[in-house]
Amino acid sequence: MTVTVRDLVPEVRADVEGFARVRHLALPFFLVTPDSLAYDLAHARPEAHYRPLVAEEDGEVIGTAQVGLVHDSPEPGLGYVNVYVHPGRTRRGAGSLLVHAAERHLADRGATKLFAWVLDEPGNLAFAERHGYRGSRSAHFLRLDLTGDLPPLQPLPPGVELRTGADFAADPRPLFELDSETMSDEPSDIAYEFTDYEAWLAETWYNPLFSPELTSVAVADGRPAAFSMARTDGGTRYGTVMTGTARAFRGRGLAKLAKNDSLHRARAAGFTEAFTGNDTGNGPMIAINKWFGYEICATEVRYVRELG
């Protein structure tokens, strides 16, 4: 039984389904579907040199890698390598083959520093360190059972109204501007510049996982002041990928208000699980999520490797 590594072929349904299956088994708290994978590849920016890889054994996809350059950072030469192997198919060499293929691809395209998210488990951390990566910051995955109780909906402060993302379908730019501002303040070891509206439309607004109907927006003084952006997998799983408040409106509880509204509407729509993620240094957001009843279900560590 020989393990081989090759490019994902998005037109081959077995490829995207195998990729999605491995990602779900290895990282069940992260929403991904075959359609979202194919969409991401079809709409990747050329300068990202995005290259999803699969490790295959006897015709079965047993490992995956998402590989590319961090094209929206002002710092040149940054790349990412996120490798996941089927939990029942480890110790076959798939992970190492994927890492080596990914590093060659990125080095050939000028990458000098690589970032990789690694689940905080002894075997995974040892694997990363054997391949020359060193630990950096970390982040939590959190899960909430939507079949249980939620905090009651709160009365709106004067001058504040709640809308959905769908209310901005004719002109999503105000949500782009809010997303850009809040994302730039997120704790990270990579600096990002979110200035390309057309790229945001392709990567976020039109992504098949994005749910404008379950995205809640708190509007104050006539502009979006806070929001909770939602994604769903088309089944029973719902996730918030960004919850934040514009700088001028912070300290008023508007992000909590928007997220609570989104959670209630997700439950009413039949979703049974809610997922989100937080940098471990983002104490305020972790506290808000624990107030809702989220529990930490896993932790990932960001690993970094400098290429010579």
Rank of each mutant, 00 (worst) to 15 (best):
V99W: 05
A225Q: 15
A220V: 07
Y133D: 13
A170F: 07
K290S: 12
R173S: 06
L31D: 01
T4F: 01
H140M: 09
P46L: 14
A199T: 12
A274F: 01
N289R: 04
E17N: 04
A298K: 05
A166Y: 09
H105Y: 02
G18L: 06
Y133A: 14
L178V: 09
M285W: 08
E213A: 10
E300M: 01
A230L: 04
D72G: 08
N207Y: 13
R23S: 03
M285E: 05
L209S: 01
V5N: 06
L97A: 15
G18R: 06
V83M: 05
R13V: 08
W117C: 00
A191P: 10
D171I: 09
L25A: 06
H86R: 00
G132E: 04
V5T: 13
R305N: 10
S180F: 11
L53E: 02
G234Q: 04
N282S: 13
R45S: 11
S138A: 13
D189E: 08
V16K: 04
P46Y: 06
A226N: 10
H24P: 02
I62P: 00
T240K: 04
T243Y: 05
V5Q: 07
V83N: 05
P151G: 10
L98N: 06
R109K: 09
R231Q: 10
E57T: 00
A225W: 09
H86F: 00
F141M: 04
L254V: 03
D196N: 14
R247D: 14
N278I: 02
K256E: 07
R21F: 01
L98P: 06
V83T: 10
A139C: 10
H131R: 12
Y84A: 03
N289A: 03
G88D: 03
V160P: 08
E181Y: 11
Y303P: 02
G251E: 07
I62V: 03
D58F: 00
V160F: 08
R247H: 14
E47D: 13
R265L: 15
V118L: 00
P284Q: 13
D196K: 11
P172A: 12
R247S: 14
V83H: 11
S138Y: 08
T4W: 01
G79Y: 02
P172H: 12
G148H: 14
T204W: 15
E17H: 03
H131C: 07
S228H: 01
D185Y: 11
V241Q: 08
P155R: 07
S184M: 15
L119W: 04
A107D: 14
